[in-house]
Amino acid sequence: MDTLLNFLSDHIELVYIVILSIFLGIEVIGRVPSVLHTPLMSGANAIHGVVIIGAIIVMGKAESDNYAALILGFLAVILGTLNVVGGFMVTDRMLEMFKGKKDRK
């Protein structure tokens, strides 16, 4: 119990960020029209690609003789970049198509 409380108080700022972000996330997209569901999903998909920052840190910290870490980190950077770049591009293409449809009507 004591250790748990200590852990909580050591990271209390992060805990606050988590709680506030949860409510923010709910509020921000609360009234999205259903046509935007898929682009929003795709956009959110690109945003969680922020995990690539972790991959960059892993890669940058790896000792140059630690091949396992180097290779795994390298793969992680590639996959994370794919997530970010691909995610934003696909979302943009979706929204472009969406706009075109509306103009024709």
Partner: peptide, 29 residues
């Protein structure tokens, strides 16, 4: 949420906010 755990691991605020935002917004979505 997995990205947010990465944010916890590195004390990285942008990973944390980005991850949790997507986690909660994604659930509502």
């Amino acid at each position: 949420v997995a990205a947010a755990f990465g944010g916890f691991l590195y004390d990285n605020p942008v990973m944390l906010t980005g991850g949790i935002l997507v986690g909660s917004a994604g659930t509502i979505l």
